[in-house]
């Protein structure tokens, strides 16, 4: 398979498409919509990212605010796949309730299960996440749970009918990158459903790493929205995701403990000084 970067970055001419819940996607970048400096910047970043799936949250309408602070009014209609999350839920019941509210808005049946049981780390509650996934799958949702980077839990989630699993690299918004590449690699290797690395990434290098570890996609919000230049970072992440994906498909070299020269040994003009001295001593 050849995946050259034909033309401009972000152009969707790649045959490397993939599928979630029957939906064919060409971009491997899911963009979160929170914390951008303004809706206008968010929109430009969205464009620069090439993302086809965007996430958002369900909240009470602010009744004291006259202006419409809904995110949807700013988005182009009909081109995006919406992935609302259940953030704010502390257990499966609350997540199911939020998921139903989100679906009632009439923008599809995808739902990112996000259940935090701890305010300091916002780490996902594995037990409630699995329960909510089971219930929402039964209710006909396309369920993408945000989960700990635990290979066994990810397997249970896939068995429960999750359409993808979304292990976190690090706690939400920390920018710490991928804290346990071993686990993520294992999840990617064994998962029967696409693995989307979600949460905790800091910059483009983390996106490359996620993709090289075998992730199908990356979900990022804070590293883009809070970057010095969110639009430029959106493009950087997009390129990084493509770079990491290409590298993964290309097949990286094995890691070795010592050097392995790029040119052949025969015909070289001299030896390393240290080696020559050693040989002299040996002959002497």
């Amino acid at each position: 398979m050849r995946l050259g970067m034909h033309g401009e970055a972000g152009q969707k001419s790649t045959p490397d498409s993939w599928t979630i819940g029957g939906k064919i996607l060409t971009s491997r970048f899911f963009l979160g919509t929170g914390r951008f400096p303004s809706p206008a910047v968010m929109l430009q970043a969205l464009q620069a990212s090439g993302a086809e799936v965007i996430t958002f949250a369900v909240r009470r309408v602010n009744l004291d605010e006259v202006a419409d602070d809904s995110i949807l009014q700013h988005l182009p209609e009909g081109t995006l796949t919406y992935l609302p999350n259940t953030s704010g839920a502390n257990n499966a019941d609350e997540a199911v309730r939020i998921a139903r509210l989100a679906r009632a808005a009439g923008l599809g049946d995808w739902i990112k299960v996000e259940i935090s049981a701890d305010a300091r780390t916002l780490l996902p509650d594995p037990v409630e996440t699995l329960k909510a996934t089971e219930r929402l799958v039964k209710e006909g949702f396309t369920v993408l749970p945000y989960t700990s980077d635990d290979p066994i839990l990810c397997r249970y989630l896939a068995e429960a009918g999750a359409s993808a699993v979304m292990p976190g690299g690090a706690p939400i918004g920390t920018g710490l990158g991928i804290l346990n590449p071993y686990n993520l690699g294992l999840i990617a290797e064994q998962s029967p459903v696409p693995v989307i690395v979600d949460a905790g990434l800091g910059s483009a290098k983390d996106a490359v790493q996620a993709m090289e570890l075998g992730a199908a996609a990356v979900l990022a919000n804070t590293p883009v929205a809070k970057a010095g230049d969110p639009v430029a970072m959106a493009e950087a992440m997009s390129l990084a995701i493509r770079a990491g994906r290409l590298a993964r498909l290309a097949g990286r070299i094995p890691e070795l403990p010592y050097a392995s020269a790029s040119s052949m040994e025969a015909g070289k003009l001299s030896s390393f000084a240290a080696d020559a001295a050693w040989m002299e001593a040996a002959q002497g």
Binding site: V61, S70, P84, S87, A102, A105, I172
Partner: peptide, 10 residues
Amino acid sequence: VELVHFVGGG
């Protein structure tokens, strides 16, 4: 009564 909508989120 709860009236909800979508806001930015990750």
